[in-house]
């Protein structure tokens, strides 16, 4: 993975009240790479992810997309544009319950980007086909299975054509078969040019699901390397202890 760096965080810090959650979080992600953040609960993984699309505002640090600094105090249209550039799939998906699968996907392109509806729908249908849901476009999201909903959530995040896709615990609600499908889908997306940062507890999934793993502890990345190498030959004691506890 040697493409240009798409997303970079430098020295992000975030406190909730008196509790420091991120301390000097730095990460540079090249194009098409899939990076997984792993670590104990409370290590700051989810907060790091939410700082990358400014759902949380870092207290300090710098954010860059394609080498351009993104002020962390953005508001209004510029904030919208940044978030459109950095898509996100949530652990609990948060699909819009009153809309069909297709309408979940076209909502933002039509109402945020101002795309003509027909154009947005055509692209949404392409995305649904890409995630294997071309015949469920009109279904209400409640009528879909867990795996299908997850694909709608991914398609929804992709509809804004983001440079980067953030994935929060995407495997937590899936069975084994769906996890394998998801892994294949993420690699397809990566091959097609999407850069991804994911947070997960699922070490079996990241072994082949991610290219690179960053181990977080105490609000910062303390070990960083290719997925297999980091899992098979952990360097730091804390990572060794974490992998030991996570189960053989």
């Amino acid at each position: 993975m040697t493409g240009p760096v798409v997303l970079e965080a430098r020295g992000l810090q975030k406190r909730f009240g008196d509790t420091p959650v991120l301390q000097d979080f730095s990460l540079a992600v090249p194009e098409r790479q899939i990076v997984a953040l792993i670590g104990k609960s409370g290590a700051g993984k989810s907060t790091a992810l939410r700082c990358l699309n400014l759902l949380e505002r870092p207290d300090a640090g710098t954010l860059l997309v394609d080498g351009q600094t993104v002020p962390t105090t953005l508001t209004g249209k510029a904030l919208s544009a940044h978030r459109a550039n950095v898509g996100m799939v949530f652990q609990h998906l948060h699909l819009f319950g009153h809309l069909s699968a297709l309408d979940n996907i076209v909502e933002a392109p039509v109402h945020v980007l101002g795309q003509p509806r027909a154009e947005a729908e055509a692209r949404a249908r392409d995305l649904l086909a890409q995630v294997g849901l071309q015949d469920r476009a009109g279904a209400r999201v409640q009528a879909l299975s867990g795996g299908q909903r997850q694909r709608v959530a991914i398609a929804r995040a992709l509809c804004m054509a983001p440079r980067v896709l953030l994935l929060d615990e995407v495997t937590s609600a899936l069975d084994v078969e769906n996890i394998a499908d998801l892994q294949a889908l993420l690699h397809e997306l990566s091959d097609a040019g999407t850069t991804m940062v994911m947070v997960t507890h699922d070490l079996a999934f990241v072994r082949d699901g991610a290219h690179r793993i960053c181990f977080m502890d105490g609000g910062a990345i303390i070990e960083d390397g290719p997925a297999h190498q980091l899992l098979d030959a952990p360097q730091s004691e804390r990572l060794q202890a974490f992998l030991g506890a996570a189960g053989r």
Binding site: G76, A84, H94, F96, G97, E107, H111, A157
Partner: peptide, 20 residues
């Protein structure tokens, strides 16, 4: 989470309120 999801798609607070 509906607010989060809409915000992550770049939707403003007013738009989120109205549409979602």
């Amino acid at each position: 989470g509906q607010w989060d999801a809409a915000a992550a798609l770049g939707m403003s607070r007013g738009l989120t309120l109205r549409r979602i």
